[in-house]
Design a protein around this nucleic acid. Structure first.
Lengths: 165, 165
DNA sequence: CCTTAACTTCACAAATTTCTGAAGTTAGCG
DNA sequence: CGCTAACTTCAGAAATTTGTGAAGTTAAGG
């Protein structure tokens, strides 16, 4: 086995990273954040330094910096500092990240606000206004359901994988 | 009330269209599809012709054509032809569109496939492989839950708004 | 304190995406 | 059977996005 990273075949890891990143891109994520995220996800530690990311992905420190900032804002990675060092590590926080993925809460709230304005400006009695009110109800419904779904996931996860976070 | 479109204030409708489209864009949709979709959603009929769309949004027939094709592919609008005419109407199919929105089925399936390959190529026994297997389980779980959620929505919708599609 | 390592910010070049006008295609209508 | 209305496709200009190198900032370590 070709093994240049200390445990795995570097090439097949890289291949997975790029292919998973491509899926994320297709789903709307920017390219650099997607690649960085995929790299972190497939690292054994679940964490990498800026330099390691730059080397594996062949990108500049500036690109790492920008990508990581985006991911941190979305709560998909967290940054940690080894005490007494200027070096940071970026970490995929266990299952926190996919909870963030479904936590489109902010997005849903904005949609709901926009639809609410739509109902108001079109008039609740017009056909368009009524259609929009129903759409709004749908998003409010989804909003409420998601919390319950995530709770069920935690239970299921616990019993299947053991060890809560 | 300024009323140039035959029932509503054209300017406030346009304002809503642009602001809702902006939200959709921020969530990842392309600009033209987003604007076209918002326009359809706020029309009383829930349907408009190519010419009407071009006029309201100030875009070329080519842009309408491209945007509508995208929306139809995503099952967010359907095209209908008034019989004995070359003219088409594009329609937001009641509640069908937001069901399509949650029907990220294709997306979820691709993610699952990619993650499955990841587990295989990293090794199910490695830490990274284990983390990825858990992620995969999460998406499979969500996949299953969504169908049930939509069913609950239909029941709720029926009792709150009456009249199934 | 001075040096240096480790990010971050910024201006700009390159790549990509988006929209348009023009030309093409198809189907209704006289 | 040809004319015209109603899309669609395509090539390319314009705008936007992306990633880089270079310069800037901050904090360890000597």
């Amino acid at each position: 086995m070709t093994d240049t990273t200390g445990g795995r075949d570097a090439e097949s890891v890289s291949k997975f990273v790029e292919s998973f990143a491509a899926q994320l891109v297709e789903a709307g994520m920017q390219r650099m954040p997607a690649r960085i995220f995929a790299a972190l996800l497939s690292s054994d530690e679940g964490a990498m330094t800026s330099v390691e990311l730059g080397e594996q992905l062949r990108i500049s420190p500036a690109a790492v910096s920008g990508g990581v900032r985006y991911l941190a804002q979305q709560h998909m990675v967290s940054r940690e500092r080894e005490p007494g060092s200027r070096r940071e590590r970026y970490r995929v926080q266990g299952n926190q990240w996919y909870e963030a993925l479904t936590n489109r809460e902010a997005v849903l709230k904005r949609w709901e606000a926009a639809l609410g304005e739509g109902v108001a400006s079109l008039g609740a009695e017009t056909p368009a206004g009524r259609r929009m009110a129903e759409t709004l109800a749908f998003f409010e419904f989804v909003d409420g359901e998601i919390a319950a779904m995530m709770e069920r996931w935690r239970v299921y996860r616990e019993e299947r994988f053991g060890s809560a976070p």
